[in-house]
Design a protein around this nucleic acid. Structure first.
Lengths: 225, 225, 225, 225
DNA sequence: GATGAATGAGCCTTCATTCAT
DNA sequence: AATGAATGAAGGCTCATTCAT
């Protein structure tokens, strides 16, 4: 009949990927302001989730950071959990981009791994609240959100699976445990790395290289058996 | 060392109604029960904190597990946070005990590290809710509790610092990063290890040995420089 | 008179996407649409108020049913309460029309009452969401809306007052209580009547006739007094 | 082992029916105050649900009426809906008691019905907020609460089914429709009866008798066909 | 040692409504 | 005629904690 479009849902589920042909003339401020609030909200959520944890962050906190009332958040996101999912998505997108960019112009396998780890650590520790949330805040109870988040994380880690597969390794070395060892160590850095003490301390990228080095080079004084 | 769950404390299977025949011979029951409740409470708290997280566990949950009302907990512990501290303390005590026992009768440095890692992993993954809480649940906000808990953890990790110091390592290898790498990897296993898939999968101790092996032995196909 | 649902208003089956070919012949569509939205809104409101109750229906629900955003409703109606008033008005108009039509061509007093009751019941149970709202959803708190709605209902019930006044009744029979008894019974049918069980069960009109029959005919086995 | 009793749940589900052997010496005030708060809460809830409707009554309203904070209600009742169920239960208990008492010492079938109706009306209109809630406030959405409430109501109405079955009625009179007619009319009185205008207006019991009289006696001036 | 009852703050969410565009 | 974004109040409910008994 003549029903226009059914807007029905406000800003949630803004599934606009891919086909956004934007003529450069069409830089309309409507679209700009559109995503702005959502972005601010996401930033605030990422910061809070990262610093205080998902559970200890209240929807009110996030709203206040952005300067709106807590109820207004629900115009942009259907629930607190959906905010978490959105932060995860952005986090994975960012760290993936960072890592992919780091290994793009390099072919040597160990070098690629090292650069990937450096990018991973850099994003995690220096760069982005988003990325830290990806690693720290996984909903404990089973449900669609948890499932989706695990999937996202697995997709990201597949990059490392591939990187490791390309390494010239001695026979018998377990690729899986190598990945687990490396990523586990990398991610645990959140627990002890102190941001901001520049100068004397190692930078995230340096730490990553140290870790890879410990694996790559023989550390044993003897003959390595 | 498998399955050292709840030593000296009676398991609380919560299904004992009716048969409370007080034999006159059982005189000192009151005295026995004295410390029991505290232990039961601690067990319940450890289980809940481990499975659901500190924030998502309510004091009521713990009280119910033990069969008392939530208010009654405050006779035994001054606050929820103190419960956490107590669980940490017990956790550190247990994992420390396991690790020290594992390395007691061994002198070879690499072997000692391997055994320590195996004990660490075993306690963490197979043994004790307490130990997992030590690694997972650190109060985010600064305060005396957090300070105390970090101190406890550091004391435990000093064992590994020493173990690593005794290793015959090539010059230039960073002892600190080696410890960080190893413990980070070990502890991250909580995120991916699936308890209970008996038979085909590796046991916690095996995983620990794999990790140490990846570090100790040259993994590179080349000459390792 | 069965199934007089939504006359003159297009049914909103909410499944018309894509095929909006605007034929040039269809010029006055805009003008047609003018009043349409108001009607669609009213239909949706009537359905919701009837099925879920006024309080449990949100303005958003109604808006969604029609395919607009909740704020847009306020272009057509000043408030949720005004929507209710409008539904009532339409409901009274419809049931009044049905009842008047039913008794138009009949002169015998008891027959007229019977037909009126049948029309009342038919509209209520089979026909219109609007009519049900009239009977069910009266604002509890005093105010202009409530006053107006009661007035409307009283005007409608005056039809029955007159019908009963024309009945050849024994002296001493209270016309008021007779009306109250009859309408009370008729309207309470909403609580137990199950729509849709075709075939074996009585139709609304039959039930109405049964009720009138119970009043008109002696039911006592004895001599009735 | 030695767990005392598991109190676990506070006052909810206080299933103490039947076997409360109370020695007259044991009039302990503990038990008295025990149920007191629950009772006050129930009274306040009944009043509010009756006057303003379930949906328009907030848990805070009820709490305020009683002088406690809204959260404290949840010590006594698990949810707002459970409050409604409890009010229903009490309401059915009261009206059932009233009706049973009214017909106890009477054997004549029509007289019994009349007395039952009088008691029903009296309880509904003059006596108890509880009873009115039973008739007015049924949860719209399917679920255990609704199911339970319908069951309760049906059990009560079975009294009338039996009363009507005992009536000396002419062949062909539908017992079901007679009950529906009578109860429908009786219950609809909530909509028009004005409490408190004593003196000139009829009392609830009188109205009930009028209704029964309209059914029992021939109202038609003719021969009743 | 524990209960019963409550507090007070806070939680996530929903809602009717507004208004510039 | 309708949208997009927000408001402000309120909603049901949970929680750590307290304290007289």
């Amino acid at each position: 009949m003549t029903r226009s479009v059914k807007p029905k849902v406000p800003a949630h589920s803004a599934g606009d990927e891919g086909n956004t042909f934007k003529l450069p003339e069409q830089v309309d401020k409507k679209a700009v302001r559109q995503g702005n609030r959502r972005h601010e909200l996401l930033d605030a959520a990422a910061r809070r989730f990262c610093r205080e944890g998902y559970d200890r962050t209240s929807v009110r906190d996030i709203a206040e950071d952005v300067g709106i009332l807590s109820g207004s958040i629900y115009y942009h996101f259907a629930s607190k959990e959906e905010l978490l999912v959105a932060v995860h998505e952005e986090g994975v997108k960012r760290i993936t981009g960072e890592v992919l960019r780091a290994i793009a112009a390099c072919a040597e396998p160990w070098e690629r791994l090292e650069r990937a780890c450096a990018a991973h650590m850099g994003t995690l520790l220096d760069g982005s609240d988003y990325a830290q949330v990806v690693i720290r805040e996984l909903p404990r109870e089973p449900g669609p959100a948890r499932t989706r988040l695990i999937l996202l994380r697995d997709q990201y880690e597949a990059i490392f699976t591939n990187l490791i597969k390309d390494l010239p390794l001695r026979k018998g070395v377990s690729l899986t445990y190598l990945r687990l060892l490396l990523l586990g160590a990398l991610n645990s850095s959140q627990g002890w790395y102190q941001k901001g003490n520049d100068g004397d301390a190692d930078k995230p990228a340096d730490i990553a290289k140290q870790f890879v080095g410990l694996l790559r080079n023989t550390i044993d004084k003897g003959d390595g058996r």
